[in-house]
Amino acid sequence: MKFDRRQLLGGGAIAAAGALTALNPHGNRALAQDSAAGSGMGHGMKGHGGGTSGATMRKGATVDHRANGFNPTDLLRDFDEGRTRRLASGRTLREWEIVAADKEIEIAPGIKYPAWTFNGRMPGPTLRGREGDRLRIRFVNGSAHPHTMHFHGIHPAEMDGVPEIGAGLIQPGKSTVYEFDAEPFGMHLYHCHAGPLAEHIARGMYGAFIVDPRQGREEADELVMMMNGFNTNFDAEGNQVYAVNSIAFHYVNEPIRVRQGELVRIYLANILEYDPINSFHLHGNFFDFFPTGTRLEPADFTDTIGMVQGQRGILEVRFPHKGLFMFHAHKTEFADLGWMGFFEVV
């Protein structure tokens, strides 16, 4: 999908929640969520936890998703395949325009974080192509700080998006174009590589970069989850808020609705800074795990996986039972500080 830069920089409500869910380029049978942009809680759990029931933010307090410009429920199934065009060679060219912008994001009810974003959201848009496609990303720096876009994948050195190589740092108001082939297939990342690196990543400058295998994957309800955190006091020692897709306890307040027996595919990455490791644990179910998504055979059948910084993979699961199933970091400190959610199997 295309973002209007003017709207972006104006901080307008660019990501009207319903519009994002409607734009599901894979045509998956995505389940319509009760979009709760601006209204706080959705259906399901009205704020789980409290006291011996476990961690929770202050009851009744909500995040203003409309002011943030995005709702994490909508980010889950929001895949951006770019504008496509067939080249003379027969290959597909995919083009995106990505704009860096500084923006205050309410990451937990009542806590605002001065984020640096790609396209005004955290994580940035999920860029998706197919193995062998030609990818062209025009990067416009609308932020007050120099940035880059560094993609994980196989590409020429000058397209690596690091300072002093190729286009190097992109200064405020400037732009560049990164162009390379989509390889290898798998679940990858892109992030800013300007220095100080930890801060540029921690501030929110990252997103998922998915390359589908040439032959495609089995149809599934696909979800993107970026495990992240926020060092709100900027002491560079751990984080005060942890989450998947930026908003603490969001999927507790709005459980992710999936269908019983249907294949659910989760593109999972750990983009956490200031903590060396993160993990993902699913209750009451087991999943196939494909490390980095670069092989079609699962490497593990488990309910818990650990990931270091920048590690990612693909999870495939079918939920045999209806009901609410918790998922969270099994580094429980992170879970208690916001990285916790529910699947609602219907």
């Binding site: 936890g49 409290g50 006291g51 011996t52 476990g54 961690a55 929770t56 933010m57 202050r58 009851k59 307090a61 937990a108 009810p109 009542g110 806590i111 605002k112 005060q240 603490a248 306890f249 400190e333 208690d336 500080l337 916001g338």
Partner: peptide, 29 residues
């Protein structure tokens, strides 16, 4: 089951408390 804190603002500006955690666990209050 409860911890009650009396918090004083000792600085020059108003302060808004957003959330509270105890031993790395966010709590309702």
């Amino acid at each position: 089951g409860e911890i009650e804190l009396t918090v004083r603002n000792t600085g020059p500006d108003a302060v808004t408390v957003g959330q509270v955690f105890v031993n790395d666990t966010y709590v309702d209050y």
